[in-house]
Design a protein around this nucleic acid. Structure first.
Lengths: 341, 341
DNA sequence: AATTAGCACTCAACATGATAGAGTGCTAAT
DNA sequence: ATTAGCACTCTATCATGTTGAGTGCTAATT
């Protein structure tokens, strides 16, 4: 790989990202003045193909980058521009405007990212099951209903309604509330187990029948908590790209987006620090073999708790996407840090 | 409109719904044995076109139903089959399985409807701003944070986190809690106004600075509550239909689905009892001029609180869709009634 | 030894033209 | 009032030819 090969490869990739057309030697020598004739470029291209960085859609067509080509580009040649000051300010403003609950913030981040990149963005919420319960309190509504309010160390609030057919008095609820708080505080949700029930019954035997109805319901609720949520935004953006002019391709892509499990897998299997890029066949699922993902993490308390991702064709403007994703994730981190410390 | 015209129209509509191909006189006389020759059918078709029930995509093609044609079919000729017993049981089972919070139930209903109909389904959640506050309670988390738990008469639970920079004591929170409860109970959310603040300050002057931080935050939260939420399911189902083989049509449709305002308008502008069908150009928005909506309402407390809808091409299997939507909405009503009474 | 001009060859994309087939509307016969 | 017969219309499809961007190889040039 001499200097010139690198230049040629880089030029081809940039051109292809821009035009979506296979790049030929003549076009290349015209646009990017490499100082050599098309014939020379042809030879280099032939070499690059042999090395696996380029492919030819058919004989006597121009070349397009292979997954391996994108990979070497992304790892070695790509320049990441800093996002413009005004745009940065704008992102921050928009994020602050919408910062009610954490989920709102994330949903809105997805929207901002898809608008700025023109691709589809996907955000994974924190894995709430790893959260520790910070406080739990039973709030009576009437004789037969109460709300079990819980807040976790990462600021997640859950408040399921619990029905008590036999009725419950105010002071009973309070007693049970205190007891639950003692037992569950600082436990992570997935560690809460049903056998805690037995301990409770021993300690507070006069409330046995209430405990027996309320506690299992809370456990069931915690059990049933969706592990992560997935927010999508800009799903129709793919219609901007010629690779999805084929109705079957478009359908396949959109169907994949609808499958929460696949998306969750794709996103959460990326590496856990900084920006991670996974290209075409590198992806965990066959369904995403024509797509690339650019993923960032966001944290609270120095624990990784979620990821945000851009998904689009492998012919993606990686440089721009990386800078947007990086910036937004950085702001989310800032906002979450100031909020929950 | 003699008897025979009706039969011909009906046959054309059913055939077109099934095949998506313009229906010609010969095909028609073969499939549905109407007892007359193609030539006679041709004459009837010509009449029906003049009456506005049919249109011809181009000279010398078969006929397809116009919006007006579908309308008369839906209003007068359509038979609605009762959905099969086993299927009914299955719907109920699935709904019960997933009945945690109301929102979950609705989200799941959307999924069931889209699966059973093969179209896209959209569900509008209750207009929470019309709900009355049943109970409000402040739950302290630590010195600087508390959760304002609210439950409404329709069973909606909201629990925003409220930050109190100056700190708040346990008993202060309780006092304020009781006061808020007194003042806000049975008020509808949209009637809660900021000037209530002033009254509170007069009554509980020793808590002035806490009231000043906490109460406005709760008001802001209530103000900012999204009026309705929209759940979609089966958005990629449209790719099953030849009318969306055209990439532009597909894009237009999916883009419309992404626009919450349009969808909310379309659905909520339908009539408020029983099943409502709106066909093509009858729809409120230009964007939906090739679509039909079949919409049902669901209620709690005899107040209409939400709608569920199927959206698809005007060439929709109205009969089947109506029966599914009717059945699901009925079950939702049942479940909500037993739950919140 | 590296570069490049020249040239024959390849292949998708597009335009053209011919044909088949489903359908219509009209007229005259039943 | 109904229908058979017929000329006509229009789309869809297929084969054919042309264009143009691109390649790879060879021989000439630097």
């Amino acid at each position: 790989m001499n200097e010139r090969k690198i230049k040629v490869l880089q030029a081809i990739i940039q051109d292809y990202i821009e035009t979506a057309e296979p790049v030929g030697s003549r076009t290349l020598s015209k646009k990017h003045n490499l100082g050599v004739s098309p014939a020379t470029i042809r030879n280099e291209m032939s070499d690059l193909e042999e090395l696996g960085y380029l492919v030819q859609p058919y004989t006597s067509a121009g070349r397009i980058p292979s997954d391996k080509g994108y990979r070497i580009y992304v790892d070695n040649f790509m320049e990441i521009k800093m996002i413009a000051y005004l745009q940065r300010k704008n992102i921050k403003k928009k994020l602050l405007e919408q910062f009610g609950e954490v989920e709102q913030l994330l949903q809105h981040s997805a929207k901002i990212i898809s608008q700025l990149t023109n691709y589809t963005s996907a955000v994974l919420t924190p894995q709430i099951k790893n959260d520790k319960i910070k406080r739990i309190q039973l709030v009576p509504i009437d004789k037969y209903n109460l709300i079990a309010v819980m807040i976790t160390d990462t600021g997640n609030i859950k408040s399921p309604l619990v029905n008590v057919p036999d009725g419950v008095e105010y002071d009973e609820a309070e007693k049970l509330s205190n007891l639950l708080n003692d037992k569950l505080q600082d436990k992570s949700i997935k560690d809460v187990e049903i056998n805690i029930l037995d301990n409770l019954e021993l300690e507070l035997y006069e409330l046995n029948n209430i405990i027996e109805t309320v506690v299992p319901k809370i456990f069931n609720f915690l059990e049933g908590l969706d592990d992560v949520e997935l927010f999508l935004s800009g799903t129709t953006n793919i219609f901007n790209f010629p690779e999805y002019n084929d109705i079957i391709k478009a359908k396949t892509f959109l169907t994949m987006l609808e499958e929460k499990e696949i998306m969750t897998d794709l996103i959460s299997s990326t590496k856990n620090d900084g920006i991670s890029i996974s290209i075409g066949s590198e992806n965990l699922h066959q369904e995403a073999k024509d797509c690339s993902l650019v993923t960032a993490t966001y944290k609270i308390d120095d624990n990784i708790i979620g990821k945000l991702s851009v998904i689009g064709p492998t012919r993606m403007d990686y440089s721009n996407v990386v800078s947007v994703v990086k910036q937004v994730s950085q702001y989310i981190n800032e906002l979450l840090r100031t909020r929950y410390k």
